[in-house]
């Protein structure tokens, strides 16, 4: 039987030389490194700091910033108030008020739109779950990363604000529109 022990390899610790044991040469090289950095920063301007409010960062493609609601190309809210994002949101930043039973004749085939849609940007952790879970492609994490306000209530973005910030999404999917068109062609469907 091959003992499991036999498969172990023992790594030998390398013996330090006398000079190394003295530490002094190592100290010296350390001092050289730090001094080089000091010199380069002070006299040759090799600074890595980005001085934030004056200098801004280029947001890379695919960055996940604040989540905003988007409209479709016909200026309609894409969100159907399914509340999946509210459910999935880990810090419970989203709060949706569903529309209630009243039938809104203007929304046509999409019976449901949120009456109110709030995201508490103080709670949101920009995780992107809402975008991922949304079955309607109605919410997207966009490029804003630095949101400020002077009060807590100001940091709760309501539907109008989210839609205004979110802009228009030109995705190819217009599920509800297609359904309505399809249905209109069939006599059984009476949209009156």
């Amino acid at each position: 039987m091959n003992n499991a022990r036999n498969n172990l390899t023992t790594v030998k610790r390398t013996e330090l030389t006398f000079l190394e044991k003295l530490y002094v040469p190592t100290l010296w090289s350390g001092l050289k490194v730090t001094f080089r950095h000091f010199w380069n920063t002070l006299f040759r301007g090799k600074v890595v700091t980005m001085e934030y409010p004056e200098q801004k960062w280029t947001v890379p493609e695919g960055y996940r910033g604040a989540p905003y609601l988007v409209k479709d190309t016909e200026d309609r809210t894409k969100c159907v108030s399914c509340q999946l994002c509210e459910f999935v949101c880990p810090p419970k930043a989203i709060r949706i008020t569903p529309p209630g039973p009243a039938v809104d004749p203007t929304t046509g085939n999409v019976e449901k739109r949120p009456k109110e849609f709030e995201i508490n940007m103080l709670r949101c952790i920009f995780c992107g779950f809402c975008q991922e879970v949304c079955p309607e492609e109605a919410i997207f994490l966009q490029k804003d990363y630095s949101l400020t306000g002077v009060s807590r209530s100001e940091m709760i973005y309501d539907k109008e604000k989210l839609l205004a910030l979110g802009g228009v999404h030109r995705g190819p999917i217009m599920k509800w529109k297609q359904k309505a068109d399809e249905a209109r062609k069939q006599d059984a469907f009476k949209p009156e």
């Binding site: 730090t34 950095h37 000091f38 920063t41 002070l42 090799k46 600074v47 890595v48 700091t49 001085e51």
Partner: peptide, 10 residues
């Protein structure tokens, strides 16, 4: 300041 310069900061 010195620590900043050593660490390439401001």
């Amino acid at each position: 300041k010195i620590s900043a310069f050593i660490q390439d900061r401001v």
